[in-house]
């Protein structure tokens, strides 16, 4: 029986942790962090939610099947590499926009690539945890 306190807490914690995970993702290029760790933070949030409120609810809180998140993540990663090919540079040559955005900082294909990594990690972790938890 999931405890009420925990489930209430995680409900509020979930958006916060997701926000934090994005922060870890973005700062990764300059500070320790990055897509991988960010993705893990985000999925930990969902995993906690799943443990406290049940897998069905956690699945429902997710807009799409985790499998599609993997696909999207892989797609973003490979697209980020191909942008340079369209521009005539070798595959995965980094391309940066000159403008510096607030909060996000510089925007370029490596950041986009890292976002892909972030999504794949979320998709993978959630697929594993949801399916394992349901299996029991």
């Amino acid at each position: 029986m999931p405890s009420l306190i925990l489930s209430t807490a995680t409900r509020y914690l979930l958006p916060l942790m997701l926000l934090f995970s994005v922060f870890v993702l973005i700062r990764g290029h300059n500070e320790p962090g990055g897509g991988f760790i960010g993705g893990l933070v985000a999925s930990t949030a969902y995993a906690l939610y799943a443990i406290s409120s049940g897998v069905e609810k956690a699945r429902a809180a997710l807009p799409i099947e985790p499998r599609y998140i993997i696909a999207v993540g892989l797609g973003i990663a490979v697209t980020s590499g191909m942008i340079s090919m369209i521009l005539g540079d070798p595959f995965m040559t980094s391309q940066w926009l000159d403008t510096v955005f607030p909060v996000i900082g510089k925007v370029g294909t490596p950041v986009m690539f890292d976002t892909g990594v972030y999504l794949v990690v979320i998709g993978v972790t959630l697929t594993i945890i949801f399916n394992l938890a349901e299996g029991e």
């Binding site: 290029h29 300059n30 320790p32 510089k106 490596p110 690539f113």
Partner: peptide, 13 residues
Amino acid sequence: AKGHNVVNVILVD
């Protein structure tokens, strides 16, 4: 490569 975190730059670039 426009990144301060060398490890991350190696990983993504």
